[in-house]
Amino acid sequence: MWDWQNASPLTGLNFVAMVVGAVVVLAIGLGVVTYTIYAERKVIGWMQGRIGPNRVGPFGLLQSIADIVKLLIKEDVVPERADRVLFLLAPVIAFIPSFMVLAVIPFSARHPFTANLAVGALYYIALSAITIHGVMLGGWASNNKYALIGGMRSAAQMLSYEVPLGLSLVGVILMAGSLNLNDIVEAQARSGWWYIVPQFLGFCVFLVAATAELNRTPFDLPEAESELVAGYHVEYTGFRFAFFMLTEYLYLFAMGGLMATLFLGGWTGPWLPGWLWFAIKVFAFIFFQFWLRATMPRIRVDQLMSFSWKVLLPLALLNLVVTAVLKAFLS
């Protein structure tokens, strides 16, 4: 029943197992998001010499839960001049892919809830492009100039940074000889080193492109509150706003998982159990993003696009060519 990755997932109990797996992954994702938000506020608070949330529950541990409850029971306001159908649909379109990409992330060595998909890395890249529709439609349907500018900026930024992001993965895929994320982890375990060492250039490109793809500082132009009020979600309230935030933080988790899988050896590591290694690596990525947010100012909008196309893309291509040549001559 729990072997649905290798048998057909559409038959009998395999289907039930697949649905149970999806629910469990959703629960894990929601838990991670809740405490990512708490950790972000706490860590940035410490970095800025503040205390951070400490009122709700011990050490403020229930703060995010209180915030979520507040967002869920808030009034759901739809602006009068907005395009009602698209306005209601946009957060759903944005959220669904962010949850679906978690399906291919191998959380641990024995992975009952990870799809053994032969095109895993491509699947991640392909689905994360769908979220752009939600962001863009949300900005457009709000019928608000700041939302529209934020939506357009976001779409342009996410689309252009997806190209170097995808190309930076190709070096790893060449070395592992597979698009399947499970195989990539095992190939790293066999080769004896994590791909961050031979693929350091690819890793740097990936890290920058991932930060931009996640709309986080210093690439948080789509949500520049000081120039755009807030960006594409300025008209959203209540649980629809919560859905956009949930999308963003789920992607933070998923991108951390992707980075850990591709460059840091996934669940492999000495002594500790696999899932704990995976959690440590993902949290290192998430902490790095907090750290960046507390440190960096926002990049200028006219530098943003040229940086992606003129710096990151050539670097990613160079990395790809070097990897291919080395692989051809060394093997």
Partner: peptide, 11 residues
């Protein structure tokens, strides 16, 4: 299938 999503449904 994945290429179809990436290129058609996405781009």
């Amino acid at each position: 299938g994945a290429a179809q999503i990436l290129i058609y449904a996405g781009a």
